[in-house]
Design a protein around this nucleic acid. Structure first.
Lengths: 220, 220
DNA sequence: GAAAAAGTTTAGATTTGTCTAAATTTTATT
DNA sequence: AATAAAATTTAGACAAATCTAAACTTTTTC
């Protein structure tokens, strides 16, 4: 079966929303896709027609096996292209998301397999998100949010909560990127902000909101 | 101004047809784009509205300066991606045209400039066609068709007449590609076929039709 | 548990890009 | 120069993807 760019984007958006909340609503989707609820309803009917998801009017939507498979194929393409853009074309991690949104819809399967090999079969994209293989499988790393760390705990940054340029911008300013080693120096109960130390860098303060969007692997 | 994929494809097709025949007709375009004359008329009206071409009903169409500029930008992207696919992803020259037809519509200007640099600013694509620079300029090589060579003349293959897989297939079989050095051994007046010799290869015969689609640079 | 609020769907319209069939214009033929 | 043939355009329709406004369900609130 063939899918339009719009259809692929809906499937991908449902997949992402499903991760935190297994039943996805029309309004959530409209917000995610920057469109109107009425448009979402129309598309959900079409995608149900194409047997990609379970959709019960007024009661939300859920991808079925085929839907998940397509979502992961698109996500695979997106993340491989992001890796290519950063690794080979020397873009910074905050510039690549928008470009990859276009490249992910190029259809050749052969292309993406060769790109994967050319890049050395990377397992994570520049934002720390795992890259699915042809069958849709990907590595899950046991990451927690920086906000959950205790004082004096050390950790390595493994991912970020979204790809918005505002988030990536503040992380760049604070010299935080994937692979950065850090230690929590102090937690302030009052506003849930925390102070962290990165080697050769001054102490930096992170708001609760920001710390929750930074994922880490605790070491020890 | 923004252009859809369909609009870009029309502009590109008009550019190609214009090369051999400065006034392009509705029927020619319909054939080239595998669509109907009525659809072409509709699109020509829209592109005239957008001031990309001169269009006089019943009297054909011609790109204006803006139209040519857009055409060359799309062709630049197409040829750079083809070069990438062959050089980096190891596709063969007959596999890349279709994939590049999709990649050429990815819009980021920054992407294509970085891709150009990453590839080492190549001046010709894998079929021997010149790659325009950002401003649309490209090298013209003084090529003639193989069919115009005299007996005993030597030459280097510099390009091919189209990207059809049937043409590229017969060239592969006969071990002819861009850069191949050859010498015309004999010309047969009867059917205008010619016999050529490539080093370390047996003599091969080329029909008139085929020889006219192979472009070469004669060496002395 | 009725009324209000929130969320969702339907109805009807719009834009893009396409099509077929009919009408029109240009070109070729005698 | 009239007619036939070929090319092109117009008219009207359709599918995809979107929108606004109105109608309808579900959920929340008192």
């Amino acid at each position: 079966m063939n899918f339009s760019i719009a259809e692929e984007n809906y499937i991908k958006a449902i997949w992402h929303l499903q991760q935190s909340d297994s039943n996805v609503t029309t309004n959530e989707l409209a917000a995610e896709l920057q469109t109107k609820p009425a448009s979402v309803t129309d598309m959900l009917k079409r995608l149900k027609e194409k047997k990609m998801l379970h959709y019960e009017p007024y009661y939300g939507v859920k991808l079925n096996a085929d839907g998940k498979k397509l979502a992961l194929a698109v996500i695979r393409k997106h993340r491989l292209w992001e890796f290519f853009l950063v690794e080979k074309l020397k873009f910074t991690w905050d510039e690549v998301h928008t470009i990859a949104e276009e490249l992910e819809h190029v259809s050749s399967v052969e292309l993406i397999q060769r790109l994967d090999d050319f890049l050395g079969n990377p397992r994570f994209d520049p934002h720390g998100d795992p890259i699915p293989d042809q069958s849709g499988k990907m590595e899950i790393i046991n990451q927690i949010s920086l906000h959950q760390l205790k004082e004096n705990q050390q950790a390595v940054v493994t991912g970020v909560g979204d790809q918005s340029s505002s988030l990536l911008d503040v992380l760049n300013k604070k010299k935080i990127s994937i692979g950065t080693k850090l230690e929590v120096k102090q937690r302030f109960d009052y506003d849930q902000s925390i102070e962290i130390k990165i080697r050769n860098q001054p102490l930096v303060t992170l708001s609760e909101q920001l710390a929750k969007k930074i994922f880490v692997k605790a070491s020890s």
